[in-house]
Design a binder for these strands. Structure first.
Lengths: 236, 236
DNA sequence: AACGAGTGAATTGTTGAACAATTCTGCTGT
DNA sequence: ACAGCAGAATTGTTCAACAATTCACTCGTT
């Protein structure tokens, strides 16, 4: 019976990649990527006509895609005015870190004995970050850092926490893009990440959580200070 | 300067109730209420034509509303098949409780010194629950219980946690409606809630968190056991 | 020159119809 | 009983139109 159940499981995971591809979702995927890469700067207005013409989709479909991204908090919708790439306020950045503390340290402190595969994910993210830092590829260092924290949250073993964390880190990128001169922002924390991963591997999760708490405080302070200097973007 | 700032604040909070009322959102509000009240049972299919005719809105507008509720996880969308009121699986119920543990006990353990107004909210929810129990109004007991846990989460002082918790409790109602004979489900926990509120009021948040943990374990066990008996609803 | 009112242009909100793509339904024949 | 097939029903998507609202600009007044 074991093999039969495995078939079902594999089948279910493939299903979505085959048939389920609505245009609105693909449009949303595109826009999301642009926003996260920084091609669409916070505050930018996305007019239905221009975007629709550029992507060759109807206004209705485009509006469905907009709704999706508004709900993900990457865009904001002002009635009768249009949709804009979201501009995070300082308060919102602070709140983002508040939730990170709750989720990430909670995942560490509450987890019984995390699946070894998840602990391995932690290590892989650290390795990748250090490799990228050696090569001076700061963008890669940033992504590896995000992956690390995603892996920390996933120690909770909850699909929903994973999803929330994904969205949360995506929003945080909105703040990163606004700021100049933060290429090497994540670099000093690489050593910290390794230490945290080691502590988790050794089963000292409470201690790892404490260290993570300190990291989050420091990163938040640094980010908020920088962000306050240019709340509307570096060019305003 | 204080009064001027207050004006701005009040203005901003009123703005949304005045102009911002898109049809799609109002439709979504209606549907959400129906789903949460149980009028639309989990598994029910919402055809675009019927719903559109009943609510007197166009298909496009209705589809926007559907997207909203799908993203809130109250509806599910199957490509080329339509939208259905979501049917929670047992795994998903378990995950819901996992996140509740993280959020609620985290809000208690991590909070420094919660705002006294929030602690008062806790007490009010308890009072209301006990009053409703005296009057044997079990539905009201349920709502008061939800309000209590919402108030617990809000001790974190994070708008985003509040929002997540709201959505999470809404989803949980999907599970409640499926189950028969659970009118008095929440009643035994009223005393627990009062004790937790007292502990928080006395500043013993860690102890309150422990008690809350036990409550969540017990409630989850009970709910899952009942839910397993009739995963597709009481009439299947 | 600064400022407010007002007018027209541009954009969004919403609808309805149309057609393509897919799924559902019921029939048929074996 | 069951596989296959045709037609009906439903969803996916686009287009065109109009109402409602905001934006941008001019104009006249001070």
């Amino acid at each position: 019976m074991g093999t039969a159940e495995d078939w079902v499981e594999l089948l279910a995971s493939d299903r979505e990649s085959l048939d389920r591809t609505s245009t609105a979702e693909r449009v949303a995927d595109l826009l999301r990527q642009r926003v996260l890469e920084g091609g669409l700067a916070p505050g930018t207005r996305l007019s239905e006509e221009s975007a629709g013409r550029a992507l060759a989709v109807s206004r209705n479909t485009l509006r469905e895609a907009f709704r999706l991204l508004v709900h993900e908090r990457l865009l904001v919708h002002e009635f009768h005015r249009g949709v804009f790439v979201r501009v995070l306020s300082v308060d919102e950045v602070v709140d983002l870190y508040r939730v990170r503390r709750l989720l990430e340290t909670g995942a560490l402190r509450n987890s019984e004995e995390p699946a070894p595969e998840r602990v391995a994910d932690l290590g892989r993210a650290v390795d990748e970050g250090e490799r990228a830092a050696r090569d001076r590829e700061w963008h890669e260092v940033g992504t590896a850092n995000m992956r690390f924290h995603q892996a920390v949250a996933s120690l909770a073993g909850s699909p929903r926490v994973d999803e929330t964390m994904r969205q949360l880190l995506a929003e945080l990128r909105l703040a990163f893009h606004v700021m100049p001169g933060l290429r090497e922002f994540h670099e000093p924390y690489l050593e910290n990440n390794r230490r945290i991963a080691e502590l988790v591997g050794a089963g000292h999760r409470a201690e790892a959580a404490n260290r993570l708490d300190e990291y989050l405080d420091a990163a938040e302070t640094q980010l908020v200070a920088e962000y306050r200097r240019c709340p509307g973007g570096p060019h305003r």
